[in-house]
């Protein structure tokens, strides 16, 4: 396991993964574009393929910017999870990113939900 030694000034990592029972949660942060989507995708897929979780939660709560690469990221993870009949939930999508999400019709493809941030977890 990686040691969590970070200074305050350091930018949050674009993706942090938490595995709890059969749910893999990806906490996304910062700006999602074609450049950053690659690192995020590789990190999620490497773990997901190994543990084959029943549910993948993509948490966008700390995402400040996202272009259509974020939509591609969600669609691509839906495809992966389908391989073992897993399910994708999109969590805490910021209101200002809703427009691009609804343009893509993502609401028909995966579950969207809001959850209160659990600060004790940080």
């Amino acid at each position: 396991m990686e040691a969590e030694e970070k200074t305050e000034t350091q930018e949050k990592r674009p993706v942090r993964l938490l595995l709890h029972e059969d749910t893999l949660t990806a906490l996304l942060a910062g700006e999602i574009d074609h450049h950053s989507a690659r690192e995020i995708r590789e990190a999620i897929d490497m773990t997901a393929m190994r543990v084959r979780p029943a549910q993948l939660v993509l948490d966008f709560g700390d995402v400040r910017f996202m272009d259509s690469s974020g939509v591609g990221l969600i669609l691509g993870r839906c495809k992966i999870m389908e391989m073992w009949q897993g399910h994708v939930a999109v969590q805490n999508m910021p209101p200002k990113l809703e427009r691009i999400v609804s343009m893509a019709g993502l609401h028909d493809l995966c579950e969207f939900r809001k959850v209160e941030k659990d600060e004790s977890n940080e």
């Binding site: 259509s68 591609g72 669609l75 691509g76 691009i100 343009m103 893509a104």
Partner: peptide, 21 residues
């Protein structure tokens, strides 16, 4: 056209639709 893409599964094919919108 929305959803048209030549770049495979990881691209949503929404680039021009977003620029327009």
């Amino acid at each position: 056209e929305p959803l048209y893409t030549t770049a495979g599964d990881e691209r949503a094919g929404l680039g021009f639709a977003v620029m327009k919108n």
